[in-house]
Nucleic acid binder design. Structure first.
Lengths: 335, 335
DNA sequence: AATGGCATTGTAAGCGTTTGCAATTTATTT
DNA sequence: AAATAAATTGCAAACGCTTACAATGCCATT
């Protein structure tokens, strides 16, 4: 295994007997090169096994063909599906993806964005339930376009792609109300987060209002997003006399479901459940869990496509994209 | 929003009245700088909002503080947990992660590795069930250390961290045999892949042999790794008269379980199931699925730690790391 | 055959850092 | 106070590529 001091553009130029510029031109597909010399250059590149140094290229051209993705946790199925959508279209446009996990910690989010900026990424896709003010500040200070995916910016200053959370929750709550429930619990993350307080809760209240049911604060729950949290909150939900619940996280929903069944409730006859993220989790359980249907992959893909346009200085017609959602009726609801 | 032509090292040098070299030294924590000037430089950096350009730095120093991670699919919970382990220790050592999905396609794996090389990553972590010969070739041609995580290289030429797949499968199969089953099916991925043919199958046969049970090829199944595949293969498994199964994928296992229950089998009384990846899926179902326990996060973390050493030219004592595995007995097995 | 115009190629100045080495300052010895 | 050692700093050459701009070559025109 020899020291692979890989060939440089100089080497191939020298080999062919042309200037650096010419080699650079053929490497970059620039048209103004005679066919015959192009061929010679290509041959030399082949023989020398020349691979352009992307770092040098980045320094000279001020483009790194790399984007940054800031997300809460790769391990979270919801976000990883967005990430996959992002990655696929990023590749399509020949961008690489620099990935950062933040666990929704504003401090780490800020660091991540700054770090990506110093790495000179051409653009950033940001995911997270809430856009901290500080984070938003450093984002807008970055010299590269940023688009939000599956995240809400209450001030709508940043381009973003989402579903209509208010409408989605409203529909979900409305669906169980229509099935005869008048005490439906809702479990979300911290209410301070806009996506919970401003969107989910608003949708919930709208559905209640439409059915002329008074809002009862005791039916409002806030948990971590994991299975154990579902198990725990279930008991408290039961205590309120609720007969249906709409949750923001699939694992939580399943935790609730399993707890309830263990405690003699039949699902969906005695208790209905609707969750929000439509991940694979909703499919593998029995019964399968009814969920708001989100085009997760597409949210990522569209966000990335949008970013490519931004990076290309193209004009964007709509900056606040709302993708259609559905209600996937499965086994935890009647009808 | 002014054009943020961010300050360069030159700007701060000029501002303080020192040379570039000095600024560079303080930025890099080099000791040989007088305290007073260090302070002045730091102040200027603060005032100008100077952030080192990592690309320029990379070109000059030939280190990018970036590593590449090649994986089948972020969306796969098994791999995403490894990725999280990798990312956490990468951050700990101040490396960024360039992520690539390959869907286990050797062509894309090769492209990914080459691409990462041209981006001058300092190291690569490779994940995937099988190491194609071509891929292995391009890997060994790369001028950066590579370590495998959760992947087997039959020729053991590359550093890797794994569990002992042979032993793990043997134990799982042995466990159901001990419970009285003599017809235990095994479902894996393509047998051509070493991890299946060489490891899983070998472990299976060892367990049989130990119990003096003849190998019956009809009990060997190969599927895609998803829930639907489990549903499908279940019928065929049932037809063989098998009364237990060991699978390589959690979703497949759950597909099998649900199919069997729908067809009147009681789990685990009539049929036992053990799966291999111990993802969250095994927890949310009822019954919960018995699984080989793998320290997924740790596999990633240890692999990354190993990579840091390699990148640092430190000597590695053991290059083929085997982490301990367990058998997580849950609801799909007796005992 | 001289002229103009386009296609092709070369020149060289960056891009923003790091870093070996030399130069300068400051501290220590005697 | 001179001499020597040690600590700070500056110089300038890389790093490998892109890209205005200039230079050259080639062809058709007249």
């Amino acid at each position: 295994m020899q020291k692979k001091n890989s060939a440089t553009i100089y080497d191939v130029a020298h080999r062919v007997g042309v200037s650096l510029a010419t080699v650079s031109r053929v490497v970059n597909g620039n048209s103004n090169v005679r066919d015959s010399t192009k061929r010679k250059v290509l041959d030399a590149i082949e023989e020398l096994g020349y691979h352009p140094n992307a770092v040098a290229r980045g320094l000279a051209s001020k483009k790194t063909t790399t984007i940054g993705v800031v997300m809460p946790d790769v391990t979270d199925v919801y976000y990883s599906e967005l990430a996959r959508g992002i990655d696929d279209v990023a590749n399509m446009y020949h961008y690489d993806v620099l990935l950062t996990n933040t666990d929704e910690d504003p401090v780490r989010e800020t660091m991540a964005v700054n770090n990506l900026a110093s790495k000179q990424v051409d653009g950033i896709i940001f995911m997270g339930n809430e856009l901290d003010h500080e984070v938003l500040n450093t984002i807008s200070g970055v010299n590269a376009p940023v688009v939000l995916a599956g995240s809400v910016d209450s001030e709508k200053r940043l381009p973003s792609v989402n579903i209509d959370y208010v409408a989605a929750i409203k529909e979900a709550v409305g669906a169980v109300i229509k099935n005869g429930h008048d005490r439906v619990a809702i479990v979300t993350g911290p209410v301070e987060h806009a996506i919970n307080g401003m969107h989910r809760l608003v949708g919930y209240k709208m559905a209640l209002e439409e059915a002329q049911i008074d809002f009862d604060e005791t039916l409002l729950f806030s948990t971590h997003q994991d299975y154990a949290a579902g198990l725990q909150v279930a008991e408290r939900i039961l205590a309120t006399g609720a007969t249906a619940v709409v949750t923001y996280d699939d694992e939580v929903a399943i935790g609730i479901m399993n707890y309830l069944r263990d405690h003699g409730k039949r699902i969906p006859e005695d208790f209905e459940i609707i969750t929000s993220n439509d991940t694979k989790f909703t499919i593998v359980t029995r019964p399968q869990v009814t969920s708001i249907g989100q085009p997760k992959y597409d949210i990522g893909a569209v966000a990335m496509r949008m970013l490519t346009k931004l990076m290309n200085n193209e004009v964007i017609e709509v900056t606040q994209v709302k993708l259609p959602h559905t209600l996937e009726r499965r086994g935890t609801t009647l009808n």
